[in-house]
């Protein structure tokens, strides 16, 4: 029984956040899911809550997911981050590798969330 963890889901789409919350809950009912709708909000939440994992949508207005991930990496390097994107291309992969973060392909499915969480636990 893994101790309770906190996941921060960052996406400007409310339905996306609901979906992620739903799938995480199905796998770990006791985990806490925090939400943020923008990159800026994500930083505020992360500093306050100290999550065990951050799921960050790339395509958001304002700061954007990659800039927020870079900032978060600098401030709180211990927190694992996974970028969420439907547009997986070489440039995104390289950027993610450079930052030392992973990425998950959209659409968000229960299988993809399960795979991500299992790699997190393995680490």
């Amino acid at each position: 029984m893994t101790p309770t963890k906190t996941v921060l889901i960052v996406d400007d789409s409310r339905v996306s956040r609901l979906m992620a919350r739903q799938y995480i809950g199905a796998l770990h009912a006791d985990w806490i899911v925090e939400e943020a709708a923008t990159g800026e909000e994500a930083l505020v939440k992360a500093r306050a809550v100290g999550p065990d994992l951050v799921l960050m949508d790339v395509n958001m207005p304002g700061m954007g997911g990659i800039a927020a991930a870079e900032q978060l990496r600098q401030e709180l390097p211990a927190i694992p981050i996974s970028l969420l994107t439907a547009n997986v291309q070489a440039a995104t992969r390289e950027r993610a590798t450079l930052l030392g973060i992973g990425f998950m392909e959209k659409p968000i499915t229960e299988a993809r969330i399960a795979q991500l969480l299992s790699t997190l636990e393995a680490a």
Binding site: S13, V15, A86, Q89
Partner: peptide
């Protein structure tokens, strides 16, 4: 929901075009 679905669609299209 509709916007998110279409964003996923065009995101994948962008990947092909890139």
């Amino acid at each position: 929901a509709l916007i998110e679905i279409f964003n996923i669609g065009v995101g994948q299209a962008a990947s092909s075009m890139s």
